[in-house]
Structures are given as C-alpha cells and as structure tokens.
Computed example of a mutant assay.
Amino acid sequence: MALWLSNQELSMFAQIGLIALMGIVMKNGILLVDLANDYRRNGMSAADAMQKAAPERLRPVLMTALAAIFGMMPVAFAQSDGAEWRNAMGFIIMGGLATSTFLTLLVVPAAYALPDDYARLKTLVRAKLSGEFWKERRA
C-alpha cells in the first residue's frame, strides 16, 4: 500500500535538511576565514593570508563535506516504509553540500580579498586624481 504525502509533509524534512546544510557550510567558511584572520593579525595582506589559509583548510573542509554527503546516502536512497518522508532531506543535504563546498572554496577567498583590493583601488584613484601619482612617476 502506497503512502501518499502532501507537499507540506515532504517539505518539513527538506527544511530540516536545509538547516543542517547551512550549518555545515557556515562552519566550513568560518574555518577558512578564521585562519586567514590569524594570518592578517601577523601582518599579511588579505590576499596573501587567504592564499596561505586555503590550502591548509582544504582537507578539513572536504572531510566534513564528504562525511556528511556519504552519511546522507542511506537516507536519500532508502526504500523502506516511510522512507519517502526522509529522502528529500537526504537529497537536499547531498546536493547542497556538493555545490556549496565547491562555492565555499572559490567564493569565500575571493570575497575575503575584495575589501582590501577595494581600499587599494580607492587609494590609487585618489592619488591619480590629485596628481600625486604622476609626480611620483616622473621623479
């Protein structure tokens, strides 16, 4: 006998999966940014700090994501009675972690360096507009 579920009942487990997904993704981003902040306190620029922090935190980020993905496989592919209630949660966590881990490793380092790059660009533009930039070049 098939059990028919409403969209509201299915979405409850999907929402639980989404909350779990957000928690894991934020933890991975915090791991990366925290180490980069430590390097910034030691005098490194934002780009250099992130270039040093990213390879060091790659393994913990991937281990966390892959453990959660492989841990959700039985939930996502279960065929037992009532499993269709939990399948959505498993698929959301698996797909979301796969894409968000990839984006965390690309977007977080780029976004971390943006304010520092913007400040340097603003200083350069102000120097060019005031004429000091060209005076230094001619000397």
Rank of each mutant, 00 (worst) to 15 (best):
136 E>P: 06
128 K>C: 13
126 R>K: 15
89 M>I: 05
106 L>Q: 01
15 Q>I: 11
129 L>V: 08
25 V>R: 04
69 I>Q: 08
80 S>H: 14
23 G>A: 13
74 P>N: 10
76 A>V: 00
7 N>P: 00
129 L>M: 10
19 I>C: 00
31 L>A: 05
18 L>P: 09
111 A>S: 06
50 M>K: 04
107 V>M: 02
85 W>N: 01
20 A>Y: 07
105 L>K: 02
2 A>V: 05
51 Q>K: 14
134 W>N: 07
119 A>K: 07
119 A>P: 00
71 G>Y: 02
60 P>T: 06
46 A>Q: 15
130 S>W: 07
125 V>K: 13
48 D>E: 07
86 R>V: 05
112 Y>T: 11
106 L>A: 08
20 A>C: 11
122 K>M: 04
22 M>Q: 06
7 N>I: 14
131 G>H: 04
125 V>S: 14
3 L>S: 10
46 A>G: 12
94 M>N: 04
130 S>Y: 11
4 W>H: 11
4 W>M: 14
56 E>W: 10
37 N>E: 13
72 M>I: 06
10 L>K: 00
53 A>N: 11
83 A>S: 02
118 Y>V: 12
9 E>L: 01
65 A>F: 09
64 T>K: 09
107 V>Y: 02
44 M>Y: 05
54 A>G: 00
8 Q>T: 10
34 D>E: 12
48 D>Y: 11
